[in-house]
Write a protein that binds this DNA or RNA. Structure first.
Lengths: 226, 226
DNA sequence: GTCATAATTTGATCGAGGTCAAATCATCAG
DNA sequence: CTGATGATTTGACCTCGATCAAATTATGAC
């Protein structure tokens, strides 16, 4: 795996992200001090469940999928991380072992933060500790949201919920572009691609238009009721 | 809601729990300083999703269920907390609003820790911050485990996995008592009670005996293969 | 543009698990 | 011990979404 140093642009992406933006400059600099960047092709596996993991990853570009493997080889997505997100942090507090697999969904550039060092810095800086706690909370919430949606909503309802999550409230009509293949969305929602497709066509009756990756909503209310 | 002060026994339960046992005495004392205890009957609702929440709860006795409500009134369990567990901590970092409902599953005694104060203490004490991060990680893992199991395993497999989780490895034959009604286990596993019942009877063929709340395993291997 | 390949959709079938109703079993107050 | 109440199990049925196969539609290399 080829690694590089952090360039100015990468640094800007890091500093502008949710995790770093609230940190004092000194804290950010300390964290980013010896960060390296690694490049990955689509499908590259970044780490494997159960194996030692001593970095926390930041997505500089591309897309990463966290997933678990079943005995039979089937895969269950835990989360999908786009540019600007930090992941792999929970291994830090669980014996430095990955609790899931991670894979690049598309060509990705990742910043690797040494997890021992980050942990040491968190001990010294309450701001870093606080940022980590918020990150952990957000990730815990994401998992709980998924769990609740899986258990409470049908496929079309989950898709409606995903669309609404990408639609500013207040608007009645809205359009946006999926940030990844339908493939990936299906995994994220815990559906087979076929089921996602059928869910979209069920939503067509409620004023949702799908053309390639572009989703158009004509009646927010109708979606909320679904 | 009737509240009491912490008595010596309660204090011992707290200090012996996973969260407090690794903390220095001074830190624990500071946290427990103004803790109050509240008693709840079975079915009592402790807090409601979306409402302000400014305590973190510790289960001194009894059982508490965290769950989300669907539009149609159905409920999805997020977690079940037995004696010795701390919960409600994630609201602390998410604007002091509950992200789920909580209900006593059986008569419960809870210690209430002021969340603002705990947060302030975490800023001053790296040990407390560390303990909180570990707690958040564990809870995130619990949710991810559930999510993965829901997506990868059938009902009998989930039950087998639950049983194995309560069975020390190395043993071939083993017996234990469910810590709660089957009712509750069903919810925790994301199943209707009927489905749990049928799952148990499917496992009977693999050497699992169920008598009331007592589960007996006669062949660990067979369960693992299931 | 044209082809090759990959992504998505559609059709058909099937099985897991939800729901409702009824039967059985436990538990506990008296 | 005896009901009465609640928990669990069983049966019958039905729906949702998985799976497999085939058709269709992008997408990218040339």
């Amino acid at each position: 795996m080829k690694t590089l140093r952090l360039n100015a642009n990468d640094r800007a992406v890091l500093l502008g992200s949710g995790f770093f933006e609230k940190l004092p400059t000194a804290a950010s600099s300390a964290i980013l001090d010896d960060v390296v960047v690694s490049m990955h092709e689509e499908h590259d596996v970044l780490f494997v469940q159960g194996e030692p993991l001593d970095h926390v990853f930041f997505v500089l570009s591309g897309l990463v999928r966290l997933y678990r493997l079943g005995k039979d080889g089937r895969e269950a997505d835990i989360a999908v991380f786009p540019k600007g997100e930090l992941f792999g942090e929970s291994a830090m507090f669980l014996g430095n072992r990955a609790t899931a697999n991670a894979q690049a969904i598309e060509t990705a550039m990742l910043a690797r933060i040494d997890s021992r060092k980050l942990r040491r810095l968190a001990e010294q800086s309450p701001e870093i500790a606080e940022a980590l706690m918020q990150l952990l909370c957000r990730h815990a919430q994401m998992a709980e949201d998924c769990l609740a949606e899986d258990r409470l909503l049908t496929a079309p309802q989950r898709v409606a919920s995903y669309i609404l999550g990408n639609c500013p409230d207040g608007t009645l009509s809205f359009s946006f572009r999926l940030p990844f293949q339908k493939n990936v969305l299906a995994g994220k929602l815990g559906l087979a691609p076929e089921a996602l497709s059928r869910a979209f066509s069920a939503l067509r009756r409620s004023g949702v238009t799908v053309k390639g990756r572009v989703i158009e909503i004509h009646d927010r209310q109708a979606l909320e009721r679904f």
